[in-house]
Design a protein around this nucleic acid. Structure first.
Lengths: 348, 348
DNA sequence: TCGTAGATAGAAAGCGCTTGCTGTACCGCT
DNA sequence: AGCGGTACAGCAAGCGCTTTCTATCTACGA
């Protein structure tokens, strides 16, 4: 039925062992023999049986990338960068790995399931991207899994995600707190005193850190925060739209709206426009991430640029063992404030 | 070192065969025995060895999704929908499959490599999304691979991609030609006679079909097309920006610009604005796909909505054998014209 | 009471590949 | 000529699981 190593061996008049060695190239094989084998492989159109190979060698060439939302470019860009450093042609020959992206949809259970599935496949490496969920039992479960994976020889890298103590996981963390702070400081510097904040889902680390940065900036400026100024919601446009209407309802005197990310900010802009408010004349808007479309908003979005592609590429290289992990296993990656048209001085 | 089936069997005082049967649940096992086994699994924290299982059973639980550009929401949205129908918890218990997304980056070689890798892993199903490359040798190679995959029992589904003759692949094709035609008819109906077209990469089927629709509409209206009105480029914002400047240079009298997709259209808008032209007063702009951000452009983008999520979900279900394939193995999915603010009557 | 069907459990033969160890030439050297 | 060394190639033992076939036991009807 399907062509096996033995078939190739028979055709090339050598033993299966020799064929295996030719294919893996980690053992001396005479040039003439090698050629004969390769010809047989070609003629028979042989395809290695991955599971069998993985079983015998006790390793596989799978690398898993976990993302919270594959439809969100924030993750897409990172995944793309990670994958480009990992897989397919382009890596050195023989180093071909199947980089696979798994979409958790932000669900803790799915995250765990995928981790188990990857563990099952004896993945060579796993990269987890984006914010983590802060539920204690879940965090513990994830930590345990990561530890297991590490022990089984799977390299674990966190990209844009907080470090997990007591594991061998390498963490490339974004400075969400610092970025959030800088953004709000910018707004305060422009003269704003009443700032709405549209936060992400409550339980995400990303959400908390950005919000903490925002609050720190307010505190530093001696601005007392009104609880009505914060609204939580998912990380999408629609949530931004609705949250903005809610914010406006609660306090029509707000002069600025800071959003959890760019998608949310876009929704906020739409809501503001639909409410007859001008940006930034009536209300300033700021986002986070600097996704590609942010510059196309009108006016262009003031935001914090996160080096998604660079971080992803680095994570990919570390996962492949092609770059030294940062000292201590943790690197903090800073964002860069991008001041654009959507923010200006407050009216009046 | 690692816990194996045999360890569990020993602990539960049964044979490995029984443990396997409990885990796979396809053979009668006494309730008491089952419970004992499950307890042992739990206590030992046993994780099935995927490769070994795949080897013995000659099938795996991997489902591959091939995308051209994972950073592009067009693919992200489809992948997300496909994956949601396929994998992780949510499917029936035991039907757990690892849905993995592979990013070809639009490269034919990578596409082939991933297909081989997936074949190697004995994937349960493969979904290919987005336009295909029209290079003849490559198309033949892909067709051959798909045939092989089909023969090996892997279900192959094409989502938003033209059918491949002589294979068992199920095709869910977008009516790019019809959509392109409708869009241009809309513009012509508004009175436009000089329309620029920013096409995608030459060799993609998507590019060709959309362009053909555009040209058909022009021909129907008796408009003779000027070759200078068409510019090719990648499917991204930057390409749209540059192509628009080029178009304007070639013929400043254009009253409308039709873009290959929404990202390109956004770039076009930016270029127009930077050139001091108003949209749609001076120049109308239209996109394709109706990605989420298109409605946030100012003015909102006129475009053709493709039911990406629905198509992806359907492809996913077909790949899982949970939905009947369309008769003849081919379904054409139509887009819907979304008329918004970026198109209007020509000036003067 | 005995035979037999039905329900479970086990033994064992692989699935296709990798790899440690064991040959077997053939080389250059003393 | 005789010997150690090197360079290949093959043998065979698994890797951890699934599954067919067989064995055992129980329950019943005759």
């Amino acid at each position: 039925m399907t062509v096996t190593l033995a078939d190739v061996a028979a055709r090339a008049q050598v033993s299966p062992a020799t064929v295996s060695r030719v294919l893996n190239g980690n053992y001396p094989v005479a040039a003439s023999t090698r050629e004969r084998v390769l010809r047989a492989v070609d003629e028979l159109d042989y395809v290695l049986n991955g599971p069998a190979s993985a079983l015998a060698a006790a390793t596989s060439d799978l690398v898993g990338i976990l993302v919270n939302d594959i439809a969100d470019p924030f993750f897409g860009i990172m995944a793309s960068a990670i994958q480009s450093e990992i897989g397919g042609p382009g890596g050195r020959a023989g180093g071909e790995r199947l980089a696979v992206t798994c979409n958790t949809g932000g669900s803790p259970e799915r995250e765990l399931t995928y981790l188990t599935l990857l563990q099952r496949q004896r993945a060579a490496a796993v990269v987890l991207t984006g914010g983590a969920v802060e539920d204690a039992p879940h965090a513990a479960a994830v930590a345990a899994k990561l530890r297991k994976l590490g022990e089984a020889g799977t390299r674990v890298v966190l990209c844009g995600r907080p470090a997990v103590p007591d594991t061998s996981a390498i963490a490339l963390t974004f400075d969400n707190r610092g970025g959030g702070r800088e953004l709000t400081e910018h707004l305060i510097g422009l003269g704003h005193r009443r700032l709405g904040y549209i936060a992400g889902p409550e339980e995400r680390t990303t959400t908390r850190h950005r919000l903490e940065g925002h609050r720190a900036a307010l505190a530093d400026a001696g601005i007392e925060e009104d609880p009505r100024w914060t609204v939580h919601g998912p990380y999408d446009r629609r949530a931004g739209y609705e949250a903005t209407l809610e914010l406006l309802r609660r306090d029509p005197s707000l002069t600025a709206v800071v959003a959890a990310n760019d998608s949310v900010a876009l929704g906020a802009c739409a809501a503001l426009r639909d409410s007859g408010l001008r940006i930034p004349d009536d209300v300033s808007v700021a986002g986070f991430d600097d996704l590609p479309f942010s510059i196309d908003a009108v006016p262009a979005l003031t935001t914090v640029r996160l080096p998604l592609a660079e971080a992803g590429a680095r994570a990919g290289r570390i996962a492949m063992g092609r770059e030294e992990p940062p000292p201590g296993g943790i690197a903090v990656i800073r964002g860069e404030l991008m001041v654009r048209g959507s923010t200006g001085g407050p009216r009046g």
